[in-house]
């Protein structure tokens, strides 16, 4: 992944900052404060702009979802009717309710793209390990991260073989059966690989702990980030909680 300004911060502080910001945004109940909260991810984007596709795709995805939700929600929020869309009343409270949700959703997604989007999955695992999450969980996480790429390649290979035989995904019984067999074959190959991996790991004396290949260093900038963001979140909560 492309290095950006956020990689200057320690992975642990980026994760803690994400949880702190998302938690604070989840508690905001005032649409003006939610709009103000969007300033933080916007500032982050200005400092370390991700590629257009990287930021646009998830934002487009959730905003289409929010638009559909708004169409089915606004008429059912009681309040002062602003206008009638045919027989359906559009209320002021309904619009504010959906605006609040949309702003909160966009703020958190944009924050996550900037602060976590540039993080390698393995770094995420090491950061969680250094944050003292339980060892069995970390072991499972690191093993999952390790094998996602391998299985993605295996899946792509199987799909290519199906396409070479003229298979086209359709909503037919035959196509669904082919998908079922594909899932079955993928699971079976995964399990065979898992057994081989377990044996190989045992041979090499693996005792369940993955060695960290990178050093995480908590700098003064990370402490400053925690303090600054903590203060900003506290201010947002003071103004935004009911």
């Amino acid at each position: 992944m492309k290095p950006c300004m956020m990689t200057f911060f320690d992975a642990r502080s980026r994760m803690l900052a994400t949880f702190m910001f998302s938690g604070a945004v989840a508690l905001i109940q005032d649409v003006r404060i939610a709009a103000l909260a969007c300033a933080l991810p916007l500032l982050s984007i200005a400092c370390a702009p991700p590629s257009f596709a990287r930021i646009a795709r998830p934002l487009l995805h959730i905003n289409v979802l929010f638009l559909l939700t708004a169409l089915m929600t606004i008429p059912f929020v009681p309040g002062e009717t602003l206008w009638m869309a045919g027989p359906i009343p559009v209320t002021r409270e309904g619009l504010l309710f959906m605006a609040l949700i949309t702003l909160k959703g966009n703020a958190v997604v944009a924050w996550c793209v900037v602060w976590l989007g540039s993080m390698e999955p393995a770094t995420l695992g090491h950061a969680l390990s250094r944050l003292r999450l339980p060892t069995p969980f970390i072991r499972l996480l690191m093993s999952t991260i390790r094998y996602i790429d391998v299985l993605q390649e295996e899946y792509a290979c199987m799909r290519m073989a199906m396409r070479a035989r003229g298979f086209k995904p359709q909503l037919t019984r035959l196509s669904l059966r082919a998908h079922g067999l594909l899932v079955g074959a993928l699971l079976l190959r995964s399990l065979e690989r898992a057994d081989r991996v377990a044996d190989a790991m045992k041979c090499r004396g693996h005792h369940g702990v993955y060695a960290a290949t990178e050093t995480l260093v908590w700098r003064a900038a990370d402490t400053a980030l925690m303090i600054g963001l903590g203060a900003a979140c506290a201010l947002l909560l003071l103004g935004g909680m009911p």
């Binding site: 499972l140 094998y147 299985l151 898992a194 991996v197 377990a198």
Partner: peptide, 12 residues
């Protein structure tokens, strides 16, 4: 662990 992790990855 390897089996559960690989099945988790397969579901992903």
């Amino acid at each position: 662990v390897p089996r559960v992790a690989l099945l988790g990855a397969a579901f992903f």
